[in-house]
Design a protein around this nucleic acid. Structure first.
Lengths: 139, 139
DNA sequence: ACCCTACATTAGACCTTGTCTAAGTCAACG
DNA sequence: CGTTGACTTAGACAAGGTCTAATGTAGGGT
């Protein structure tokens, strides 16, 4: 994580206590938290941090390509700190847990030229959906 | 579309003017509208239809598997009336337009057993992102 | 043809997620 | 160690969606 802070400083970021705390939460468990979950965890370390700052900081980290924004269900976006390895997501339909996965092959290549409608492609997201073991038991 | 209404009646749906109008909008252009866009179009045909009814009806159509809910950007969900053909989506990052596409191969098969974490898989969504021709010109 | 009643619809309050603003604060440069 | 412009703050606001209590009506029964 000090790497992350280092990179950010080099990009002209002012290193505030708030930004450090957000970076620390993201770096902690490598879990895909929502912005409000990140805020809740940040508050434990720095009680006066505001929601707006967390949203601002996350937005900046996304613009800088340090964090990926994932919206799998039309509810709150989740933030994925694992931006430097190409990967896709496996999502539990019941509890919303997300795991990083690495499918074989290049998904971009699966779209035939005849189906590109003149678009300039910039990326693909693959979202595998299912039930995680613990939710599968309950249902 | 009369097929759709027929299927719904057979499932015990009460056929109201409101539900007919929502079905008609979905069947019209095969475009991926948001709930509020569907409401706006429905109002033109049936001025007193309420937002809540449109949301209810869309939710029921999704539960019945007649319509697919697509959330590509964390903004408003879009509703895809083309539920009976397997397909994926190509989304313009700038204007949000969605096109149905048909990638080659089975995306589910691309997830190695070692990466399934005990999940019971139920489906995959592939979202190709890029710029549509008209947005590419502007930028 | 007309009643009944359970199901559907309505307006609008409310909730969640996210954005914006104006005023105050502080990191980092000189 | 003072200055200043970037950063943070509380809280208002906005968009998208859900819920509720009151009212309306489709369609089966008679």
């Amino acid at each position: 994580m000090s790497d992350l802070l280092e990179r950010l400083r080099n990009r002209g970021w002012r290193l505030t206590a708030q930004r450090r705390v957000v970076a620390q939460v993201l770096d902690g468990d490598h879990i895909h938290y929502t912005a409000d979950e990140i805020h809740a965890r940040a508050v434990e370390m720095l009680p006066e941090i505001s929601r707006a700052t967390v949203y601002n900081t996350l937005g900046e980290l996304v613009s800088l390509g340090e964090v990926i924004e994932v919206s799998t269900d039309g509810r709150a976006k989740r933030y994925d700190p694992n931006a430097h390895h190409a990967h896709q997501h496996l999502v539990c339909q019941s509890c919303g847990t997300i795991r990083d996965v690495h499918p074989t092959g290049d998904p971009l290549a699966s779209l035939p030229d005849g189906e590109r409608y003149g678009f300039t492609l910039s990326g693909v997201e693959v979202t595998f959906r299912g039930l995680c073991p613990s939710c599968a038991q309950v249902q």
